[in-house]
């Protein structure tokens, strides 16, 4: 799992975001155990303490829980997961709109562009799952 991490910003935050994304997208299924801190650190090529910090952050948010002997588990609280997913979606849209507006596009053109992309055959499957 070679995440693209940026050295110019705190790594633990980026990792937390990537794992969060994995959880909301279902890659890390609810209730399933994730790899150990050590394994994840090795896979990503980061310091285990950094990885621990990132996962602790998600634990604070309730997305992960630590079973002392067995490792870390994704929460089974699907309601929470969906809530986070919605928050993320909202943030993505906000960022997208901000970027588009910066280029000078009006709201209508933005909608048209988005509709066009969604309409394209390959993308249809990806978005109907909402």
């Amino acid at each position: 799992m070679q995440w693209k991490l940026d050295n110019n910003a705190p790594l633990y935050l980026q990792i937390a975001d990537k794992v969060k994304l994995g959880i909301v997208s279902g890659e890390y299924a609810p209730g399933k155990r994730i790899d150990s801190v050590r394994d994840l650190a090795e896979q990503t090529g980061v310091n285990p303490n950094t990885m621990q910090r990132a996962l602790s952050r998600l634990e604070d948010e309730g997305l992960l829980s630590t079973n002392r002997t067995n490792g870390k588990y994704v929460t089974e609280d699907t309601e929470l997961i969906n809530q986070i997913k919605d928050e993320l979606a909202k943030k993505y849209v906000e960022n997208f709109l901000a970027s588009m507006k910066q280029m000078g596009f009006s709201g209508n053109i933005i909608l048209a562009l988005v509709q066009h992309e969604v309409g394209k055959g390959e993308n249809a499957n990806v978005y109907t799952g909402m």
Partner: peptide
Amino acid sequence: ERIFDSVVFLNKGKIALQGPVDDIREEKG
């Protein structure tokens, strides 16, 4: 740099800077 917890910058025998890496990244951007 991804494997460091913290760094120490040494310049001409003196410590110029030291601290946890993510804090430095956040602070200095």
